[in-house]
Design a protein around this nucleic acid. Structure first.
Length: 106
DNA sequence: AACCTGACTTCGG
DNA sequence: TCCGAAGCCAGGT
């Protein structure tokens, strides 16, 4: 059973637990389209509010926040810090905070 | 249909 | 470790 890629991406994002983060590529992969990292961005912009997605839990493969200072960076970082993530030089340690889902069925 | 755009990713230097 | 280039997908113009 499967819906459109965007719906699957949105569902994956909703599953990211508090205190953990997922990378764009990881979300795309869990949604069944490993090369569609940019579609994750599209979904975040188009549906974060409407679908109440935990948008702040998605960061890039380097453990950094994609949003730029003055354009959401501060808010995202603050939200993550609230959830217990630790930033060192503008990045989080993925080996420590990356979400590792047990069942990846979408 | 061509071309641009983006909260990306990987790879090479 | 830090860029830049190239590859990537799909929506918008």
């Amino acid at each position: 059973m499967s819906s459109g890629l965007h719906d699957r991406i949105a569902r994956v994002i909703k599953r990211i637990p508090r205190g953990r983060v997922a990378t764009y590529g990881q979300v795309a992969g869990l949604a069944g389209s490993p090369r569609a990292a940019r579609q994750v961005v599209w979904v975040l912009n188009a549906r974060s509010e409407k679908d109440r997605l935990p948008w702040h839990r998605v960061i890039n493969s380097q453990g950094k926040i994609g949003l730029r200072p003055g354009d959401g960076y501060e808010l995202q970082r603050a939200l993550l810090v609230d959830e217990g993530l630790v930033f060192e030089n503008d990045r989080v340690d993925l080996s420590r905070f990356q979400w590792r889902p047990r069942n990846s069925i979408v």
